[in-house]
């Protein structure tokens, strides 16, 4: 397994290089850091020269990329001009931690609820519960994230306090003053993040379980007199999890890479909001570091999924 993981990591290097170059090239085409000075009435040429020096804008894109890559692999992530020229590395970990605070509970809830609702729906196909879960799933699939997030704000931060006299959750902001305040501030964004993904995951797992439910080996197990609980936990659940792992690996990369919309709506200072701020400010070093993180997350979770396939199903070999 170790050799397999190592081989996959090496194979990821060209993917990483191609992806980062594509992002660097694309970003350089659409972002001009000197734009911020366009209407500055008192900016001298020196102000432009400073930005040109900082980003080496007088060189072509491949040379600039090579320079960025050289700095990056030696640990120099650059300075974030949109953040008072603080080291990107410092901001990177700070905002990464904030995204983790949001993504971790969302991810574990997503896995738990996705599996629970998907399996329940499949095992109780065409029951009231199945219809209810199906309806809510369709609602989740159809509802844009920004709409759902704002809806939660209105219901739980405006209407509930107004009509019930208690305010259970914050409408926006990250509150770390106490564990209770953290829960009050993280709940609505976690629900928002989770709800849209949960709808898809639940449907996917339901379909997977339904497929396996009618498989020959399940019928054989039942015919052998294996208890229903054992059939579900040992045979059905385990095999249904193989496709689910694929979906969760994609979910994990999306969640841990930061959510542009959810973080913006709930004023959560994570990677997603940072990416928008960096893009608006033409902060190339910061943008590239965030892109790097997302690429690494996608590669890492895909690798993890490949390893997990083998753990779940020993027939899968790492040849």
């Amino acid at each position: 397994m170790f050799i397999f993981a190592l081989r996959r990591l090496f194979a990821a290097i060209p993917v990483f290089l191609v992806a980062t170059f594509a992002i660097f090239w694309g970003t350089s085409e659409i972002v001009d850091p000197t734009d911020r000075l366009a209407t500055c009435q008192t900016c001298s040429q020196a102000a432009y020269d400073r930005i040109i020096d900082l980003y080496e804008l007088d060189k072509n894109v491949p040379l600039r990329y090579a320079s960025w890559l050289g700095d990056f692999v030696t640990g120099d992530m650059g300075a974030a001009t949109s953040q008072g020229e603080r080291p990107v590395s410092e901001i990177f970990w700070e905002r990464g931690r904030n995204t983790m605070l949001l993504a971790l509970p969302a991810f574990f809830l997503l896995m738990g609820l996705g599996a629970a609702t998907g399996i329940y729906s499949a095992l109780r196909q065409y029951s009231k519960g199945d219809y209810a879960i199906t309806s809510i799933s369709y609602l989740g699939l159809a509802m844009p994230t920004f709409f759902f997030g704002l809806l939660l704000q209105v219901v739980f931060a405006i209407w509930v306090p107004k009509y019930l006299g208690v305010k259970p959750f914050w409408a926006s902001g990250m509150h770390l003053e106490s564990p209770l305040q953290f829960i009050r501030s993280v709940t609505l964004p976690v629900i928002t993040l989770m709800f849209v993904l949960l709808a898809g995951d639940s449907r996917f797992i339901r379909a997977s379980v339904l497929d396996i439910k009618s498989a020959d080996y399940i019928r054989t197990a039942r015919a052998k007199g294996v208890s229903e609980r054992k059939v579900i936990s040992k045979h059905l659940f385990r095999n249904a999890m193989i496709p689910a792992v694929t979906v969760w690996s994609l979910d994990a990369a999306a969640l841990f890479g930061g959510s542009l919309i959810t973080e913006t709506i709930f004023s959560w200072p994570g990677f997603g909001r940072l990416a928008i701020e960096a893009l608006q400010a033409g902060d190339l070093d910061l943008l590239m570091s965030i892109s790097f993180a997302i690429i690494v997350l996608v590669i890492m979770f895909n690798l993890l999924a490949d390893i997990l396939y083998g753990v779940i199903d020993p027939r899968i070999r790492y040849d």
């Binding site: 704000q153 405006i158 409408a171 902001g173």
Partner: peptide, 18 residues
């Protein structure tokens, strides 16, 4: 000064007393 990037959230923050 709370940094609230979204206009609708600003309005909701006002209405929520935040």
């Amino acid at each position: 000064v709370n940094f609230v990037a979204d206009t609708d959230t600003q309005i909701n923050s006002l209405k929520a007393g935040e």
